[in-house]
C-alpha cells in the first residue's frame, strides 16, 4: 500500500480535484484521475517533503470551525478599521511570539491561518529562537492576539504531535 500510494491524502485530494475539473464521473475520467493521482504522488516522493504523522484527524474539523469563525469576526473588525481610517488612523504594530511547534507542516499551516485572517500577517519565523514576527493591524488588543495564536498552536500540537 505504501509503495503504491505514498501519500494517500494527497492522492485523494488530486483525484477529487480532477473530477471537479472534468465535472463528470464517467468511467474514463475516473480511470485517468486514478492514474494521474498515483503518478503525481510518485513525483512528489522525489521532492522529499517533510513527513508528519497526523493524529486525531477529527480535531482538524474543530480547528477549521474555529478558524472560519475567527476569519469572519476579524473580517468585520478590519472592515470597520478601514472605513474609519480617514478619521482615526489604524494603530498597527509588530508582535513577537514564542512558539513551541517543531513540525514543519504544522508551522506552515499555522502561517497560512495567521495570514489568511485579516488583521494579522505572518512575517518571519526564526528557527533558532523559535519566535515568530507578526504584524497586527490593531495593536491595542495585543494580549488577545497572543492568546489567539497560542490557541491555534495548542490545537495544531494535538493534531500533529
Amino acid at each position: 500500500m505504501r509503495t503504491w500510494l505514498p501519500y494517500p491524502l494527497l492522492s485523494t485530494g488530486l483525484f477529487v480535484m480532477w473530477l471537479l475539473l472534468n465535472q463528470s464521473v464517467a468511467p474514463g475520467s475516473i480511470l485517468l484521475g486514478l492514474v494521474l493521482s498515483a503518478v503525481l504522488a510518485w513525483v512528489t516522493l522525489k521532492l522529499q517533503p517533510a513527513r508528519s504523522n497526523l493524529h486525531r484527524l477529527g480535531r482538524a474539523f474543530g480547528l477549521a470551525v474555529h478558524v472560519v469563525g475567527d476569519i469572519i469576526r476579524s473580517n468585520i473588525a478590519v472592515t470597520g478599521i478601514i472605513l474609519r481610517s480617514r478619521r482615526r488612523p489604524a494603530n498597527a504594530g509588530f508582535l513577537t511570539i514564542d512558539l513551541d511547534l517543531d513540525d514543519e507542516n504544522a508551522l506552515a499551516l499555522l502561517a497560512c491561518i495567521v495570514t489568511a485572517t485579516p488583521g494579522t500577517a505572518w512575517l518571519e519565523y526564526d528557527r533558532r529562537l523559535k519566535t515568530v514576527l507578526i504584524h497586527v493591524l490593531d495593536i491595542e488588543n495585543e494580549a488577545l492576539w497572543r492568546r489567539t495564536v497560542k490557541g491555534y498552536e495548542a490545537q495544531l500540537k494535538e493534531i500533529f504531535q
Binding site: V78, A92, F94, G119, H135, L137
Partner: peptide
C-alpha cells in the same frame, strides 16, 4: 503604510 496595506487583500 505597506505593512498595514498587507492586511487589505485578505478581505
Amino acid at each position: 503604510d505597506f505593512y498595514e496595506r498587507l492586511h487589505a487583500p485578505t478581505i
